[in-house]
Each structure stands twice: as structure tokens, then as C-alpha cells.
Amino acid sequence: MKIIRILSTLDRRIIFLLVGLGILIPLLKPLGIPENITPPVRDVYQFIDTLPPGSAILLSVDYDASVLPEVHPMFLSILRHAMLRKVKVIGIALNPAGVGLGVQAFDRISKEFGKKYGEDYVYLGFKPNMAATMLGLGEEIHKVFPTDYYGIPLDSLPMMKEIHSYRDIALVISFSGANIPALWVSYAYSRYGQKVAAGVTAVMAADYYPFLQTGQFIGMLGGMKGAAEYEDLVNRLLQKKGYRKPMPFAIKGMDSITVVHLLIILFIILGNLGYFLQKKEVK
């Protein structure tokens, strides 16, 4: 009883240390816990996987470095998948602090697959006023973004000659740690019938399940778990096609999350036990 009471009143810094170790040890010695693919992630994967080569998707970098460990692996995996399937990719950024992350991801993944800028992918960069941008993309992309991120006129990019609005885009995927995917639903799905999917942080995932249930999202990747599932699916595909598997950051991160979740469950049980014991003693 005494030990439970001591554990339930532990200094928070000891808890921080234990959580730190719970993350550190699996990173150094991965546990290799297999991924169970959930339907929302599989739906996004299958949608992209069954697109005819030459179709276009729009990836919106609506996140910044503060949620990078959760959302960036999703972005990289989906970009890899699209490029592997010869799907054309348009990148935009609605979060000003995410512009550089988009550039970095496109540079890295296009090199892996030898893709050409302007023919296989384009990056249009940041545009202020999300609602106006989303609505404008439904009318004429070339008007909203007369030039791309690098200042090249859109009309001069071969890939963009046939892409003018949502009618020419099979899917929009919004990667975000905020409410931007809901705006895509409001302005792109509701107004233009554009198919939308989301890659969101775990904090936001619970808020977005209602959009999945109604079919307003065709699928969703939630938190590092969603990123790890997609990473697993893409890595399997890469292996099948004879490519070298990239480093599975989200999959490795899930080992640490599993250990830390077990620790936190233990802390919650101990904290509650201590609470009830103290209550009993007072009586």
C-alpha cells in the first residue's frame, strides 16, 4: 500500500525521465511491432493505387514544423506512392510555415524516382486566404496561381496545360494539424464535389471521424499510427517493385509510442489507486 502511495505522488520529473527512456530505448533497439492497417488508411491507399497513370492529385501542405513527426512521414509516403504509380502531383501550401517542408519533400522524393519538374509534378507554393484559394481552384488554377513557387508561369509547364480546375484533379489530400481539412470539405467537396482525404495529427483525428462516416473524406491518416500504416503499405509496394525500402520513421516511432502508452496506462492506474486509497484513509 505504501509503495502505491509513493508511486502515485511521484515527482513529475521522474515521470518525464521514464517517458524519455520509454521513447529512447525502442528507437535504439526497435521492437518491430507489426502494423495493422485500418480501413481509413487502406481507403486512401487503394484510391491512389487504382488511379490510371497520368491522373493528377493535389497535395496541400497545410502543416508546419510543429507537427512534422506526425504529418511529414504521411506526406512523404503518399508522394512516394503517387510517383511510383505515375500519378501527377500538384503541391500547394496553405500554411505559410509549411512552404519549405513541401519543397524539401518534393525535391527528395522526385530524385528517388527520377521525376521531372513540370512534367510529373509541380509545386505552386503558398497563397494567402484559404477559402478564396480553395474556391478559386474550382474555377481556374492558372488564375489563382499564375506562376509556380519558383516564379515559372503555369502556362509554360507541360503538366499544367491540361489541368485547370478540380475537374482535372482526382483527389485532394490535405495534410494538417489544424482545421484546414474541414475547410477543404466545406469549399471543395460541398461546392464542387471534389473528392477529399486528410492526413492529420492525432489530436485532430477524433474531430475528423464524422467526416469519414459521412463519406466527405474518402479516407484519413490519423497521427503517427496512420503515417506508420501508410509507410508500411508503400514500403511493401516498393519492395515488390524492386526499389530500396526507405527508412520507416513512423513505423519505428510506433514502437516508442506503444511502450510509452503502456507506461501512461500504468501511471493512470497507479494514480487512481493512490487516489482511492487516500480517500479510504480519510474516511
Binding site: 521513447i23 528507437l27 513527426p69 506526425e70 477524433a206 516511432g253 516508442s256 509510442i257 502508452h261
Partner: peptide, 26 residues
């Protein structure tokens, strides 16, 4: 149940951020 699910997801999110930083440092 809804709050519990949100809390669980929030824990996962915060731990993920720490994992990202440790992956960067290591």
C-alpha cells in the same frame, strides 16, 4: 468515451512530437 478517445489521441500526438525531436537528435 468521446473525451477518453480524444485524450488518448492527444497523448499519442504529444509523444510523437518528442519522438520526432529524439529521432532528429540521435
Amino acid at each position: 468515451i468521446g473525451f477518453g478517445a480524444s485524450f488518448g489521441y492527444t497523448v499519442m500526438a504529444r509523444v510523437s512530437l518528442l519522438i520526432g525531436r529524439l529521432q532528429f537528435l540521435l
